[in-house]
Nucleic acid binder design. Structure first.
Length: 239
DNA sequence: AACGAGGTCAACCGCGCGTCG
DNA sequence: GCGACGCGCGGTTGACCTCGT
């Protein structure tokens, strides 16, 4: 019973929800000095380091202004704070997904879209593994991208075939190279066409044709990204 | 202008794995 | 061998934003 009370009071102290600018500063400051890892101890200590820094500011300012009114407010503020009230998990997540200097923000590029599709067809929902191949992108971001932008197309007629096609192509880097070459050399953008892949279902494709793939004007769709890729003439897969 | 629906994404949760005493 | 602990991962949630009516 006592422990329950104690636990709830501890839980009460822990902050949740969106991070404030101040918390971001505390975390960034601490990691820049002490490095990543040991997240639980980091969560406990980070606030104290921040307090130390504030105290230095306070003392130096106080010395120059002889304890001015603003410094008194700062002093009160320092006393009110008692550290970074976040779990180690929360700190780790915030750092890795947002604060890390090498985190890339902004839209997923066409190359990245293609790579995500390719790697997902190979590994499934292994987001962290996929993220390792997209510098600056986090597993969380890729996961969100997949769920919001790709998965919603999953029920469309062309998607399973596209994924199957990519999956087949992934089996051979040469096939991907061929695919890209054909994509980039094709002037006919009226329909989506992938190149022959050695030793796969080309004959079936020839018989049935590709079903109602979206056109480049289908803005916002994943396919539009692939069209961009072909237009850019990326040579990322070409040996 | 107001409202609701749908989309986006940061953050949380639960689980599993590895390490350490 | 076993339990406690820390960490990382994938799934889920919910707040916020955008867009259409």
């Amino acid at each position: 019973m006592e422990t329950g009370k104690q636990k709830s009071s501890v839980e009460e102290e822990l902050r949740r929800g969106p991070w404030t600018v101040e918390e971001d500063l505390i975390l960034t400051n601490y990691i820049s000095k002490h490095g990543e890892g040991r997240w639980n101890s980091l969560a406990k200590c980070a606030g104290n380091v921040y307090l130390e820094n504030l105290c230095i500011i306070y003392l130096s300012t106080a010395a120059s202004t002889l304890l001015s009114f603003s410094c008194m407010h700062l002093y009160i503020y320092i006393n009110k704070r008692s550290g970074l009230k976040r779990t180690g998990k929360s700190c780790r997540l915030r750092w890795l997904n947002y604060l890390r200097p090498d985190v890339r923000r902004g839209n997923i590029t066409a190359e990245e879209q293609f790579l995500i599709l390719e790697l997902h067809s190979r590994w499934g929902n292994r987001w962290s593994k996929i993220a390792q191949h997209l510098p600056g992108r986090t597993d969380n971001e890729i996961k969100n991208y997949w769920r919001t932008r790709v998965q919603k197309h999953a029920n469309q007629q062309w998607m399973p075939r596209l994924l199957e096609r990519i999956r087949t192509a992934v089996d051979s880097s040469r096939a991907i190279s061929n695919a890209h070459t054909t994509l980039t050399s094709s002037n006919d953008n009226s329909k989506f066409s992938l190149p022959p892949v050695p030793g796969c279902c080309n004959d079936v494709v020839e018989e049935e044709g590709w079903p109602e793939f979206p056109t480049p004007s289908d803005e916002g769709s994943m396919l539009a990204g692939l069209w961009e890729l072909s237009a850019m003439g990326s040579n990322m897969y070409v040996e």
